[in-house]
Design a protein around this nucleic acid. Structure first.
Length: 438
RNA sequence: GUGACCGUAGCUCAGUUGGUUAGAGCGCCAGGUUGUGGCCCUGGAGGUCGGGGGUUCAAGUCCCCUCGGUCACCCCA
């Protein structure tokens, strides 16, 4: 609660502590399962790159590049940047290693952008994504979108909206931009204050302006698909029919304009209408057939998507599905509940040896430290969520035995005499295995 | 970068028109039961009232600045 800097995480960042962190693990594991089933391999690339990887890839004038990157100079004078998104790094890795095509990669990484934080937006956020390099097939677009959708469904989120659009290619995109510019030129007066200035510089941006003025002014604006070249139209048509064949509901949205320069042809965005905050885009992606060349590689088509982990979790909460639920709900301690808690009031040696032996036998176990009282240790055993307490007092220590006590969980009856029994030290691990197994 | 609202124990909050040593619940620790957890009872620890400056006999309460939080714009995940 104190505001001084050194005591808290930097602005826009957060710590994810235990029960919550287990949800993250579960979501990442679910993502890995979904995409690995489709042949995607995990790629771990550096968290920072030469700035040019991002500035050239995403476009110098993209807001993210122009004013949101964490740029720094290292001790050797190199100009580096913390990654603001996932795609450019993966493409750079592709250019460097030139793996066999098609190259299917997935990643789970932090991304950094210097922005004012708000609901669902952080300076460090986390993305799960895939990239495929080496195929221009529209069926691949369908596969990639299918994976994103399948993943959302797998975490229990079925209340989302998929919007798709095409950005055209180097042939028809410029034609479209010019067409749109002319359309806007005749309606400058109708636009919002901000876009009245910039409409002619970046016409596309006007399309996704939220202000009513811009929205009505562009309601009848030409769509890229109206003026797209035959190849792009055909490509888009195949993506649409592919999605339809897989029963993936998608809405064609001519206003969908994604922020990075590298997109060509198919773009898509997944949003959560149920998320009652301004930032409800869960993820998005698209094709980037020119990016590899921009980053110094051979002409190679590519496509991918990224999904924001924080927003995904927010959406799950909003949908009242705790989706991947915290694993340790039963315990109240700082970590995952053990199966066994060793209570030792005879010096601690038994606790030391027993936890070691139990863990060697793959039985999760914990203990108290600092020679706490019996009462205190029993309370810790109870709160840990363990099913059994192994009690070693003076008597047991002298006799070479352990008292194994069943910790009654909620819903148990008053309990009888079979709650506790004495077992020889050398038989304890086997006995515990037996009890836990039944 | 812009704007609005908000900062009192680990957490959720109370704190009357500015007025003695700042409170509660939960959590934590200990004891009640000198070998037994949960429930209950009792006690305890824990607060630079975000920080700095100002007004005042007196500031957690009022004013300014600053830092932080939250939400929104911009843009995006």
């Amino acid at each position: 609660m104190t505001a001084s800097g050194a005591r808290r995480a930097p602005v826009g960042t957060r710590d994810v502590l235990y029960p919550e962190s287990s949800r993250w693990e579960a979501v990442v594991a679910g993502f890995a399962a979904t995409v690995e089933r489709a042949g995607y391999g995990l790629v771990i690339s550096p968290m920072f790159e030469d700035v040019s990887v991002f500035s050239r890839g995403m476009g110098e004038k993209a807001d993210v590049v122009a004013k949101e990157m964490y740029v720094f100079e290292d001790r050797g004078g190199r100009s580096l940047a913390l990654r603001p998104e996932g795609t450019a790094s993966i493409v750079r890795a592709f250019v460097q290693h030139r793996p066999p095509l098609p190259w299917k990669a997935w990643y789970a990484t932090a991304a950094f952008r210097y922005e004012r934080p708000q609901a669902g937006r952080f300076r460090q956020h986390h993305q799960l994504g895939v990239e495929v390099l080496g195929s221009a097939d529209a069926d691949l677009d369908v596969e990639v979108i299918d994976l994103a959708v399948t993943f959302l469904v797998s975490v229990g989120l079925d209340d989302f909206e998929l919007r798709i659009n095409s950005m055209g290619d180097p042939v028809c995109a410029p034609v479209y931009v010019e067409t749109l510019r002319k359309y806007l030129e005749s309606r400058l007066g109708e636009l919002c204050d901000e876009h009245r200035q910039r409409a002619l510089v970046s016409p596309l941006r006007v399309l996704d302006c939220k202000k009513e003025a811009c929205r009505s002014a562009t309601a009848g604006a030409p769509a890229l698909l109206d003026v797209a070249c035959a190849e792009c139209k055909q490509h888009f048509g195949r993506v649409e029919s592919g999605l339809r064949a897989l029963a993936i509901p998608a809405r064609v949205d001519a206003r969908l304009v994604r922020g990075f320069d590298y997109y060509t042809r198919t773009t898509f965005e997944l949003s959560s209408p149920g998320l009652d905050v301004a930032q409800n885009a869960l993820g998005g992606g698209g094709r980037y057939d020119g990016l590899v060349e921009v980053l110094g590689g051979p002409a190679t088509p590519g496509i991918g998507f990224g999904i924001g982990l924080e927003r995904l979790l927010l959406a799950c909460d909003a949908a009242r599905r705790s989706a991947p639920s915290p694993v340790g709900a039963s315990g109240r301690s700082a970590g995952p509940p053990p199966a066994v808690f060793v209570v030792d009031v005879a010096g601690g040696e038994a606790a030391r040896d027993l936890t070691h032996a139990l863990r060697a036998a793959r039985i999760p176990s914990d203990r108290a430290f600092d020679e706490r009282s019996l009462k205190s240790q029993m309370r810790m055993a109870d709160r840990s969520g363990a099913r059994l307490a192994l009690i070693v007092g003076a008597d047991e220590a002298a006799a070479g035995t352990v008292s194994v006590r069943a910790l009654r969980r909620e819903g148990d009856s008053a309990g009888g005499d079979d709650l506790q029994r004495v077992v020889g030290r050398s038989d304890v691990v086997g006995y515990v295995q037996e009890v836990l197994g039944s």
